[in-house]
Design a protein around this nucleic acid. Structure first.
Lengths: 216, 216
DNA sequence: GAAAAACACGAGAGATCGCTCGCGTTTCAC
DNA sequence: GTGAAACGCGAGCGATCTCTCGTGTTTTTC
């Protein structure tokens, strides 16, 4: 009834030391999640990697899931910060190759800079809250791709557009997996291959309508 | 020193009942692995799913990994039985579309019939012995694809052929994931999309050589 | 400077999981 | 029919993992 009656009281005023520890722990968690995956990663291992005791870890995170969630949130935020509206609808006048090329480059760069992102999103055993975030991002990305495809496929049904969007995202994910598995020049070559696959897949949709299966 | 001195004596003569239990347990394991993944699947859950006690399970399998291995071996065997030399080099006279179409159809059918296969092969936490089998299959498939591509890309370096083979396999895997996520007509549509992606990716390689990056 | 709050530790409680063991039941060989 | 071996059970051992708690240290606040 009083003024600041919150259900989840957070009278926890973090000190500078605490913020540092949090960053330290998140970095360690990223490392461990990358090498072991979310489920196999133990909180004790994360604490050890960060050079602190298990008890200290739980001073800043209520449970293991919260670590992944905070990590995911920060990555999402950083992605939006760095690439802003890379997901935004592009100018329809932009050539297909250019649009695909820049989008693939941006996302590939982010994922190679933050391999945890892939590890957290791809695991089959991610916690519930994490799956929600994944689904939300997935839906958003699919929506953006659909918007882009809308101008490419003017006379296709919405189901076809959605399906094509899913195929595009699948191609990107497959390419990303190959890119992350290689380094240097070979990695760059796989980035180019990913672009080529997408371009060749989408090119016929632009001007050619023979691809539409007129099954009778 | 005597005659049948084996390091691993298997005087275990299975009865018909035992063989039935093994099949029962493997089917239950397939079910549980599919829904939970290998690591999250508990042996107790597998036994419960099969309607037997945990002790009975260990009467037939020395440990959890052996269950996955036996399951994998049987799947591999069944694949070779059913599709024989689907991986074998095809007649070079076969049109690209037909070759891709039949290969994709065969493998998609197998994977939709046995979703465990994908679950076991795709998990990031599969046991060591399983990873070996996966790598071996992977290498075999890549080799087959390389052989097919060899005739398509006569004047490409071996590294390029290998890379293209990996991209093809990646496209297939991505398509498979989408196919498994849908049913009925939508599933069939995704199969067709997978074929289209592969065909459009590989078509330019056949007659067109402008794709070869002549970087200096 | 003293009380309070945030930080840090590490042993271990509580839960889960892989797997074992002792004992009873069914099936097979002879 | 009888002994042996395969089958079946389920309580529970040991290891591991998440998370807690009591205690001690550092920082902030007044």
């Amino acid at each position: 009834m009083s003024d600041t009656t919150e259900k989840e009281p957070q009278p926890r005023r973090r000190q500078a030391r605490g913020e540092r520890r949090i960053a330290q722990l998140l970095q360690a968690a990223a490392q461990v999640f990358c090498t072991s995956g979310y489920t196999a990663a133990s909180t004790n291992a994360i604490a050890r990697e960060a050079g602190v005791s298990p008890g200290t870890l739980y001073q800043f995170f209520p449970n293991k899931e919260a670590i992944a969630i905070e990590l995911g949130d920060r990555l999402m935020h950083e992605m939006r910060e760095a690439y802003g509206e890379a997901l935004a609808p592009v100018d329809p006048a932009t050539p297909l190759e250019e649009a695909i090329g820049s989008a693939v480059d941006r996302f590939m760069a982010f994922n190679t800079d933050h391999p945890v992102f892939f590890a957290l999103m791809h695991g089959p055993d991610i916690p519930g809250r994490m799956a929600e975030a994944h689904d939300q991002l997935h839906t958003t990305v699919i929506g953006r791709i659909e918007a882009l495809l809308g101008s490419l496929m003017p006379d296709a049904g919405p189901a076809d557009v959605t399906r094509t969007a899913h195929v595009c995202l699948g191609i990107y994910k497959a390419g990303l997996e190959l890119v992350l598995a290689h380094e240097g020049a070979e990695r760059a070559a796989y980035v180019q291959e990913t672009k080529d696959v997408l371009i060749r897949y989408l090119e016929p949709l632009a001007g050619d309508r023979t691809g539409t299966p007129a099954v009778d």
